[in-house]
């Protein structure tokens, strides 16, 4: 097999798109299970805050109005992962590192996958080379901004 000049190649991006796609399947399932369905199994530590602190609402929960709205829409048995549970998970000195690492990887994977796909669509529909380049720069800049904002949110949450 001959090796080629990599500078013009798009192969790595395509390959990464496949890899991130595979990762996303497992990460999305994990994310939904942990974040939206099985709050108790996913609650890593109850030791971060005392029971009193939790009872005294040190961390904000949902407002009564929000809970009422969820009940009205999904029925009285509907459960919402409390904000406190998520924050507790991210406040744990040990397991939070794991979850923060997971969330940051999830963020990078999702942003790369989504924005590579978006750029494919844009290159299909935008004919003008200059406009195409502009759209590419703008979209990847937006991805960078979202990456910074997302990483900041994940890192400071709970710590």
């Amino acid at each position: 097999m001959a090796s080629r000049a990599a500078s013009t190649s798009n192969a790595q991006s395509w390959f990464l798109h496949r890899i991130t796609g595979t990762f996303l399947i497992f990460m999305l399932i994990t994310h939904f299970w942990v974040q939206h369905y099985d709050q108790q199994t996913a609650t890593i530590s109850h030791d971060v805050l005392s029971t009193e602190q939790i009872e005294n609402d040190v961390l904000p929960g949902y407002t009564p109005e929000a809970e009422a709205a969820v009940e009205a829409r999904f029925g009285e048995t509907a459960e919402v992962t409390p904000y406190d549970v998520v924050m507790l998970r991210l406040a744990d000195p040990v397991y939070a590192v794991l979850w923060k690492a997971f969330n940051i990887l999830f963020l990078i994977v999702a942003l790369h996958h989504g924005f590579y796909g978006l750029n494919n669509v844009m290159s299909d529909y935008i004919r003008n080379p200059m406009a195409r380049k502009t759209a590419k720069v703008l979209s990847w800049s937006l991805a960078l901004v979202l990456l910074v904002v997302g990483m900041y949110s994940v890192l400071v949450a709970g710590w």
Partner: peptide, 14 residues
């Protein structure tokens, strides 16, 4: 491969 590994080549095959 330099020809097909380009903007108008392989990677537009979805």
């Amino acid at each position: 491969l330099d020809t097909v590994d380009s903007e108008n080549g392989l990677w537009k095959c979805y």
